[in-house]
């Protein structure tokens, strides 16, 4: 059921190699351009954050693993621009370019600070929480999108079908599983659920260590 991006707990990756803490934010100039062009296109309003995450997750595993971080962003962006009808494949391939009827929405320099400062909060009015802090719950198994086969979800595979404890409730938040597929926001209570490392991994690195995930109510059932 899983997609390539869902890699928490995977074996086989080598050591983490930390860069110096004072390394450049964008170590190649195209990295900054890739980030900026992605944010500027997002401001056109033709997709939301969940749709853009799903676009990156939908890269073929071969591409996902081969691409560096910002290459994934660029590939996801190019695919979205076409699938959302913003540019044509002919234009992307270097053909004749026609002006877009979305041009009036272009992000101008004087609007950048406001757009970045405004953000995009995900909390919404919604149903009251069904679970209380301290309550035991079990996560959905397998981790999947119940609306769309192979669709976007934020329950990591490693935390599927595992028992945990509600640590916090964040109120109702936009449900990514629907929002990523143009099925509306369908806000649901969002919880931080804490799992014992032993429940997740069988043999934990140290007994008593824990992992938390932020999970929507429909991902959970009471115990």
């Amino acid at each position: 059921m899983s997609r390539v991006h869902d890699m928490g707990g995977r074996f086989g990756d080598g050591p983490v190699v930390p860069e110096p803490q004072d390394a450049l934010v964008f170590d190649e100039s195209w990295h900054g351009r890739a980030l900026a062009v992605t944010l500027a296109c997002g401001a056109l309003g033709r997709w939301n954050l969940d749709i853009s995450r799903h676009a990156r997750e939908s890269l073929s595993p071969k591409d996902y693993m081969r691409f560096s971080y910002y290459e994934k962003w660029l590939a996801g962006l190019a695919d979205l621009l076409v699938s959302r009808g913003v540019v044509t494949e002919e234009e992307l391939a270097g053909g004749v370019v026609s002006r877009s009827n979305l041009a009036e929405r272009v992000l101008r320099t004087d609007a950048v600070a406001g757009v970045l400062a405004k953000g995009g909060p995900a909390d919404r009015p919604g149903p009251a929480p069904a679970f209380a802090v301290g309550q035991r719950v079990r996560t959905r198994h397998p981790a999947r999108n119940v609306f769309v086969p192979g669709g976007h979800t934020r329950l990591p595979g490693y935390a599927a079908g595992v028992e945990g404890t509600v640590l916090r409730c964040h109120g109702a938040h936009v449900l990514p599983d629907s929002h990523a597929h143009d099925l509306g926001e369908q806000p649901e209570p969002l919880y931080t659920v804490v799992f014992d490392a032993g429940a997740l991994w069988g043999a934990p690195e140290r007994a008593g260590d824990e992992v938390t995930c932020d999970l929507w109510q429909s991902y959970l059932e009471p115990l």
Partner: peptide
């Protein structure tokens, strides 16, 4: 003990 926070939502 270690508690690892996996940022799976908008928090």
């Amino acid at each position: 003990s270690v508690r690892v926070w996996d940022s799976t939502a908008e928090v």
